[in-house]
Design a protein around this nucleic acid. Structure first.
Length: 365
DNA sequence: TATGCGTGGAT
DNA sequence: TATCCAAGCAT
């Protein structure tokens, strides 16, 4: 028997469900994705909310469902438009996977989001959490939806001291949720656990005196709520040195580059740049030959106009930004384009390059 | 199983 | 300022 299940007999299941769901009915926040149970919109919201705060998601969600209101609309949209709608939200493969999955639903399931675990879990970007969330919220299926909130809340209620940073630990919490989930209202049960984690059972200072289920909580009775959950630290980010260049032609237009279709910031647009592994050689010379060899771009590199530091979850970019004049347009332009100020707004840029855009490209206008 | 994958806000 | 995150998934 797992540690979680060992403590289950201490929980009065019916009262726990009643206290939790009763609290949620009264205290839940009004959020745009709670206006109805349209499976498509529930799905979009769950993808956006992955590793992302509610306050950040709200305006993106409203704009996204306005522009792509249905499965069909998102299926038929250009990926460039979809990425632009996601610009600034991060983890961009989420939305490329979402569109691929929505296209599969459109073609294979006549536009109806699957209502069973097997089919919905086979969709791109739909893992155990998202599958359970969409099934329970949109269709009322009693399936666990274990996210970071649920692990924190249940680690305290059931006194589970497993490391929640480990991928395998999620299964322990899924087992516990399976035992305790309400079959009358699995949607509210799952949402209430997450809402409780967001509003009451917070990471550093849980408001136990306001908690609707504190009488069921092992950690509250033991006074261990500040020690739980156990979570090992992440590793430090690796620093990467880059040189980027803002190239202008005689008309004031600017050269931009489309990133590869996989990996970091896949298919996003950026200013031409390269990693600097040889700091002893003049970066302007390195840039000039890089641009010539890689894109057949002939330029006259000028001064460094600024520095940008950008922190990701797993690395840090230190970017030296140069300006340059375009001397000759290349024969072929597959990955690069030369765009005006008006046109550049149509392209999706990562935040690091939005900083460059703002500071160094059209700042004089 | 551990790591790659973004961003902006909280402490 | 540095750290840790916030409704995870793919590989």
């Amino acid at each position: 028997m797992t540690q979680a299940l060992k403590n289950l007999p201490q929980i009065n299941k019916e009262n726990f469900q009643k206290d939790l769901i009763g609290w949620f009915e009264v205290e839940q926040r009004i959020l745009p994705w709670r206006q109805d149970q349209d499976p498509y919109k529930v799905w979009v919201s769950e993808i956006m909310l992955q590793q992302t705060r509610v306050d950040t998601v709200i305006p993106y969600f409203n704009r996204f469902v306005e522009e792509f209101p249905t499965i069909e609309a998102l299926s038929e949209a250009d990926e460039d438009k979809v990425l632009k709608a996601w610009e600034g939200l991060g983890y961009y493969s989420r939305v490329r996977n979402l569109q691929a999955a929505v296209r599969e639903v459109h073609e294979k399931y006549e536009g109806k989001v699957p209502d069973n675990l097997k089919e919905i879990s086979a969709l791109k970007g739909v893992g155990p959490y998202t599958a359970g969330a969409v099934l329970s919220i949109a269709y009322g299926v009693p399936e666990p939806a274990v996210d970071g909130n649920v692990m924190r809340v249940f680690s305290r209620i059931l006194s589970i001291w497993e490391d929640i940073a480990k991928v395998s630990t999620r299964k322990i919490f899924e087992e516990a949720v399976r035992e305790l989930i309400s079959h009358e209202n699995p949607s509210y049960f799952n949402q209430a656990l997450m809402e409780l984690g967001a509003l009451i059972c917070t990471p550093t200072s849980p408001s136990c005196l306001l908690c609707p289920v504190r009488e069921h909580c092992h950690a509250f009775h033991e006074g261990t709520q500040h020690e739980l959950p156990i979570k090992t630290k992440n590793k430090k980010q690796k620093a990467v040195q880059l040189a980027a260049v803002v190239i202008k032609d005689e008309k004031g237009r600017t050269v931009i580059h489309k990133r590869p279709e996989s990996g970091l910031l896949a298919n996003m647009w950026e200013f031409p740049n390269m990693e600097i592994n040889l700091p002893f050689i003049d970066e302007r010379e390195q840039l000039k030959s890089f641009l010539s060899e890689t894109y057949d771009l002939e330029v006259e590199t000028g001064d460094m106009v600024g520095k940008i530091e950008h922190v990701f979850s797993h690395l840090i970019w230190n970017i030296n930004v140069y300006e340059a004049k375009l001397k000759r347009v290349p024969q072929e332009m597959n990955e690069i384009r030369i765009v005006t100020k008006g046109e550049i707004a149509e392209y999706a840029f990562p935040v690091s390059h939005q900083k460059m855009l703002k500071q160094f490209v059209f700042s004089e206008e």
